[in-house]
Design a protein around this nucleic acid. Structure first.
Ligand SMILES: [Mn+2]
Ligand SMILES: [Mn+2]
Ligand SMILES: [Zn+2]
Ligand SMILES: [Zn+2]
Lengths: 145, 145
DNA sequence: AGTGAGAATTAGAATTGTTCTAAAGTGATT
DNA sequence: AATCACTTTAGAACAATTCTAATTCTCACT
């Protein structure tokens, strides 16, 4: 199918373009995130990829995730002091943290909302990023996550 | 002056009202947050209050902060995986994290903005809180923080 | 004022998530 | 084949926070 091949290409290009190697570990970690987009923690990614590469180490998973985030292929999200979660959705979006289930949902942002929100900043404040986090109860799971 | 006496009263009332004791440690931790509203970490609060009560322990500072947050007298804020910071500003506000200085600034929210932002949630999502975090470079320090 | 039960504080151990270190592996380049 | 940079790996180290168990304090009740 197109999606996975396409994103694989993007991955390879981005890594090459930065002088980084497209190792099996990096590819697998990325694939895993793309395949199950439920904002897993590093430990969860580790558990998922072990079946494909049983020798992979947790340190490598952390290394790969860090690389993917640094190359802009993946976003990291934090809720309070919980473990960092990883998200392959590159569209501008907010996060909804369901306090009952612990699950995290992507919320698409209407065009222009981030700019509108930046509007509340007093003069002199230059925001390079805006993050919006909702907490509460989500209704029907309807899909993965 | 009115402010400190007033907030001290609020503190005492809230603690009493929950069957909690207004201990010197709790009062001091709260005072310290009110006096220097720069979003200190627990360690920073610890360092600040030690001069008044040299025997206070870090565990107690954590305990007091947790109590204050639980009673709604103080908010906790997190940036990525950094240490939790504490904020006595109870008005609805966003946070601006200055990436150069590491300082944190409160950004007042225009009335109705949070409700407006909640508007982007699909049906079935019920948000109990919305958090907005800016990251970037702030201009003039102009005051404390 | 004195007592006792529960609440709070304390120091230090334990826990969690993450990063660091040092050694071994990989693969292109000479 | 030797070299070199990059990567992976296991385990140690680390930072922030929470837990534990002992002690101290508070305060309602005598
Ligand atoms: Mn949660
Ligand atoms: Mn920072
Ligand atoms: Zn996401
Ligand atoms: Zn604040």
């Amino acid at each position: 199918m197109a999606t996975s091949d396409n994103s694989r290409q993007v991955l390879l290009e981005r890594l090459q373009g930065s002088g980084l190697r497209p190792t099996p570990q990096r590819e697998l970690v990325f694939q895993s995130l793309m395949a199950q987009r439920d904002h897993p923690t590093a430990e969860e990614v580790f558990a998922r990829v072990k079946s494909q590469i049983p020798s992979i180490s947790l340190a490598t998973v952390y290394n790969c995730l860090e690389t993917l985030v640094a190359r802009g292929l993946v976003r990291s999200v934090n809720f309070e002091r919980g473990p960092t979660r990883y998200c392959p959705n590159l569209h501008p979006h907010a996060h909804f943290h369901d306090e009952e289930t612990g699950s995290t949902h992507d919320i698409d942002l209407p065009d222009g909302l981030l700019d509108q929100v930046k509007t509340i900043l007093p003069p002199g404040y230059d925001a390079s990023s805006v993050e919006i986090i909702f907490r509460g109860k989500a209704a029907q799971p309807a899909g993965d996550n």
